[in-house]
Computed example of a mutant assay.
Amino acid sequence: MAKFETERLVLRPVSPADHDALRTLVFDPQVVAYLRYRLLKTEADFEQAFTDHFLADATTVFALETKADHQFVGFYEFHVTETTGILTYALLQSAWGHGYVAEAGRALMGYAFNTLGLTHLEAHYAHLNPNSGRVMAKMGMREAGELHTKTLDNGQVVHVMKYVLDKGDWNRAQSQSA
């Protein structure tokens, strides 16, 4: 069970105490507009995801909690396929614009490369949400173009953009900042 601390955050496994705050996050259409969690439509859907995913995976799913007041503000996760981790994150709207995603992401990169043994990280974002792309750049990732285009249930066409980071590039950046 991994736990990390940054200047302002504690990244820890999701706990049963996070249930209500995570439910609020997942059922906020602005927060999950471009995430797979937008497909959770019912309480039963959420309960299953909470139990089978958020609580069950303490090595690749992390709650983000503020150090100052110990409040749940979001989550970060890796979807792992062989040697690649695809990053997904979401924050309560009240936590937007505070730099939490980049702060947590930088902390989790070392864990991904050194502990999970990943050699490649990706993060995807909808072109309609360019702030996510800027966050990925702040984490040291580089733009890798369009991954694909998809049409949402509401008919909106979304260009899914990709950022990447390889372990070698991360190691070089770490040695330069030391």
Score class of each variant (00 low, 15 high):
62 F>M: 11
89 Y>E: 06
136 M>R: 00
89 Y>G: 10
129 N>Y: 08
47 E>S: 03
55 L>S: 01
74 G>V: 09
108 L>G: 00
60 T>V: 10
78 F>W: 06
113 F>M: 00
88 T>R: 11
109 M>L: 13
90 A>C: 02
86 I>S: 02
133 G>W: 02
33 A>L: 14
46 F>N: 04
113 F>E: 05
121 L>W: 11
44 A>P: 02
47 E>D: 01
103 E>W: 02
57 D>E: 11
41 K>H: 06
86 I>Y: 06
57 D>P: 10
83 T>N: 15
80 V>Q: 04
50 F>L: 02
105 G>R: 08
120 H>L: 13
106 R>E: 10
111 Y>E: 07
120 H>W: 00
36 R>G: 15
85 G>V: 07
63 A>R: 01
85 G>D: 10
108 L>D: 01
40 L>V: 04
46 F>E: 06
42 T>R: 03
131 N>E: 13
42 T>A: 05
33 A>Y: 14
101 V>W: 00
110 G>N: 12
56 A>G: 03
48 Q>L: 05
110 G>Y: 09
119 T>N: 12
101 V>C: 12
127 H>Y: 13
68 A>E: 15
92 L>I: 00
61 V>Q: 11
98 H>I: 07
32 V>W: 15
102 A>E: 10
60 T>W: 01
63 A>M: 11
42 T>G: 06
77 E>G: 08
76 Y>N: 10
128 L>G: 14
36 R>D: 14
105 G>D: 06
49 A>E: 02
41 K>S: 01
69 D>Q: 14
68 A>K: 09
60 T>E: 13
127 H>S: 15
124 H>S: 02
112 A>M: 00
41 K>M: 04
32 V>T: 12
113 F>G: 03
64 L>E: 09
115 T>K: 12
107 A>I: 00
70 H>Y: 05
85 G>N: 12
70 H>T: 11
135 V>Q: 01
52 D>Q: 15
83 T>I: 14
109 M>W: 07
82 E>N: 13
88 T>I: 12
93 Q>E: 07
63 A>Y: 08
129 N>Q: 08
119 T>A: 14
74 G>E: 06
86 I>T: 08
46 F>D: 07
116 L>E: 02
45 D>R: 04
78 F>I: 00
99 G>F: 09
133 G>Q: 04
130 P>T: 08
87 L>P: 07
134 R>L: 06
108 L>V: 06
115 T>C: 12
126 A>L: 11
96 W>R: 08
84 T>W: 05
122 E>V: 13
69 D>L: 04
68 A>R: 01
102 A>T: 15
43 E>F: 03
112 A>Q: 04
61 V>G: 11
73 V>K: 04
50 F>G: 07
95 A>H: 05
